[in-house]
Amino acid sequence: MPAIVVDHLAKHFSTVKALDDISFSVGKAELFGFIGPDGSGKTTLFRILTTLIVPDMGTATVNGLDVVKDYRKIRKDIGYMPGRFSLYADLSVEENLNFYATVFGTTVAENYELIRDIYSQIEPFKKRKAGKLSGGMKQKLALSCALIHKPSVLILDEPTTGVDAVSRLEFWEMLKRLKNNGITIVVATPYMDEASLCDRVALIQDGKLMAISTPSEVIKTYPWSLFSVKADDIFTLLNDLKSFPGVHTVFAFGQAAHVSFKERNMDEKLLSEYLLGKGHSGIKISPAEANIEDCFMELMIKT
């Protein structure tokens, strides 16, 4: 039985359709990612799954329990980390953890094994107030609190937003270990690079699911030929590339521009000469592998 089954779920706020007929399922011990821009409906979906709001239409179950009817039972089974830091800033690290343990009718000692990896990193600061922790440490504490009652499903809403690159990487390492412990994890992220770390990803925009598959398969579906173009003046480069005949899309990607062409056999030389003619220097053109971000951009254009 899958851990989460969502069937034709819809929710609107006044005139805005936050979720529009969404269906998917998440298997046990799967690391499932939701990728989408701000306002795409990720948080609304998570709030329904965590029994905070009720859907207008459709059903959703967690471990076979209905989110509307069995909300009380579900709350014991899930761990939720909202996008906003929502622990008590004026309580210490230790007090927060103890509080959430007690609220779930357990103790820190009882489930210490599960959070040891994470909590041991912030334990030196256990007397510090939660509000005074750094962004990365706050996330670790929030994750510890969400895990303290040994949930079977963990729902994380943009857990790494506002966290530095190193902490982000660490955080995902932890998620993998939790997954190996048999915990189902659903995570939303605006970072495309994190998507490739998931078992499966769902691309969501304007309340609609645009694609669900493994990261490698998402990449495989990319239909065009893609090039990475570098030049000294990246800003004019982007503009000039857009006016080159046959170009489908141009996106800045780090230090380079990702250019896609609808025709398969593009002549790199032609492009190179065109750019030289525009007065660019330091031009480097190389074929590129599509990544999740490219695929997502492509999907966004289609809709």
């Binding site: 009380r72 709350r75 014991k76 939720y80 800033a89």
Partner: peptide, 13 residues
Amino acid sequence: EIGTIEQINVTPI
């Protein structure tokens, strides 16, 4: 206001 009620509401309290 500070969002802690969100976390409280998902607990069995």
